[in-house]
Amino acid sequence: MIRQLGVSVRLTIVSVIVLGLIYPLAMTGLAQLLFPWQANGALVTQGGRVVGSAIIGERWTQARYFHGRPSAAGKDGYDPTSTGGTNLAPSSKKLLDATRAAIVALRNENPDATLPVPMDLVTSSASGIDPEISPEAAYYQAPRVAKARGLALASVNGVIARTIEGRTFGILGEPRVNVLRLNLALDASSASAGR
């Protein structure tokens, strides 16, 4: 027993050094060397200013930008320091009330929308920082964004079509649109249209 205890303590110390310190530190060194942009949070800039992370969803309020999904992360949503979903059950009254309210809010924000209400825009994501929406959810919001920017619907739809990412290798995951990337592309195309 005593001998096993001695070996346990000594192996714990050795393995904490190898697996708990050297391994993550070496990985950090390699990551910073090989993939510094990803390793540091995939920060995205516009005009030299950091405006967010390419992989983290943001909270959008202005009509001229596409909006993401409802979020349960933090008080106002999209708080990366408080990630998670609503954890509401399929039979939950609260879930159905929240979904009903989200549908009403979405319809009010998008009075000119002609497409059916997309499921992802009225349900909360798992992480609360889902960076993406479905292509249907982007097209649904296009009339509002076009109106707010004074653009033709067709040109906004064109930006969406160029931003859609398909399934990886044709089968993995779902087709989607990164909201930040879409809005940046929109800003870029608005700027070039205004020139």
Binding site: G52, S53, I56, R59, T61, Q62, Y65, Y78, P80, L184
Partner: peptide, 10 residues
Amino acid sequence: TLGGVTQAIT
């Protein structure tokens, strides 16, 4: 953020 709110990148 682009939308004008403050967000912590962890």
